[in-house]
Computed example of a mutant assay.
Amino acid sequence: MEKIKKLSKYQGFWPVIVLLAILLINGIVSGGSFFEIKIVDAHLYGRLIDILRNGSKLMLLATGMTFVLATGGTDISVGSVMAISGAIACSIVDGRILPGAGQNVQVAILLALLGGMLCGAWNGFLVSKIKIQPIVATMILMVAGRGIAQLITDGKIVTVTSDSYYFINGGYILGLPFPLFIVLFVVVLVLLFTKKTAFGLFLESTGCNPVSSHFAGINVNNIKWLVYTFCGVTAAVAGLIESAGIKGADCNNAGLFMELDAILAVAIGGTSLNGGRFSVPASLAGALIIQSITTSVYAMGIAPEITAVVKAVIVICICLFQSPEFKEKMGKRFSGHQQERMAKPV
């Protein structure tokens, strides 16, 4: 019991427990078929693999969004950045822009990531230097971003026929989908950077008390600028995965409303929207919870139009379960009922 109490103090404990509970319920309802994994042509297939593959985009967005929320900010433009990066990459691979690049996939990926970096740097500039509120600053790119993407593609859905580009989403390494290795690479870099350097401490300090952090010698503005830039890069990577999955750039629908899921995933992971303490692994668990809920709803045959309602109800329950105030009130009520029962004569 003592070990469980110690583990429960870690930020990622309850998100992982909730994720396991959702998977267990699915296994029971489906009679165990939910956990079936097949090997076809040395590739792994199954609903668990689908959750990991389809959740890779959200896990990347949640990783970048964790840093932004840790500073007390928010970024609602990541969906539009996904559209921009996909438009850039597909237009280069298709030969619409930079025909001299020879439809080079490597050049397309590099310029798409650069585009995401510039978008994130623009958001960071507005927030850290111009001092615009984060939700307003990122709303500018959220609205204009899809227009920029449509300008890049001339308002058309650009399709590509490059197997090398398809590999970003549809490729396999050691039987596992390639997007998982992208997520693993990004997360390992992030954890090394936050755990092995002072950046993680600076980031948490900036979110807890930016004024005190400034007087302590931390360049709060540069920290914010850096995290928004990084969030743009992760959104660009997610955009590459999505465009490779649909084999083209759909500027109207790419990443649509995914910024809300990314913020929700980080919140489920326990990171406060007011900034401060954060945990990337907990945010990843939150992203998998959202993807598991979506997959579960479809697997159970629930109509797609009420999927959002089901997700909302489950998420509300999760958030209430994680709320210290709610748990304290429920604990007091439960202890009060026990005392009443003890006081009644037998």
Rank of each mutant, 00 (worst) to 15 (best):
N209L: 00
N209D: 02
V211W: 00
S213T: 01
S213P: 02
H214G: 03
F215M: 15
A216M: 14
G217L: 05
N222L: 09
I223T: 09
K224T: 08
W225Q: 04
W225G: 00
L226G: 02
L226K: 06
V227G: 06
V227P: 02
V227C: 10
Y228S: 03
T229R: 13
C231I: 00
G232T: 08
V233R: 08
V233S: 06
T234W: 14
T234Y: 09
A235K: 03
A236N: 03
V237R: 08
I241Q: 05
I241E: 15
E242K: 06
S243A: 10
G245D: 10
G245N: 09
I246N: 04
I246L: 06
K247E: 11
A249Q: 12
D250I: 09
N252L: 14
N253H: 12
A254M: 02
A254T: 12
L256E: 11
F257M: 15
M258D: 00
D261R: 02
A262W: 04
L264V: 04
L264W: 13
A265K: 12
A267Y: 01
I268R: 00
G269C: 01
G269H: 01
G269Y: 11
G269T: 02
N274R: 07
N274I: 05
G275A: 04
G276S: 08
S283T: 11
S283D: 11
L284F: 10
A285N: 04
Q291L: 07
Q291C: 05
T294K: 15
T295I: 10
A299L: 14
G301M: 10
I302H: 11
I302F: 11
A303Q: 14
A303Y: 13
A303C: 01
T307N: 13
A308I: 11
A308D: 13
V310Y: 10
V310T: 09
K311Q: 09
K311G: 12
V313D: 06
V313T: 13
V313P: 00
I314A: 07
I314V: 10
I314L: 15
I316W: 02
I316D: 02
I316G: 07
C317N: 11
C317F: 15
I318R: 07
C319H: 11
L320C: 13
L320E: 07
L320W: 08
L320M: 15
S323W: 10
E328N: 14
K329V: 08
M330Q: 13
G331I: 02
R333L: 13
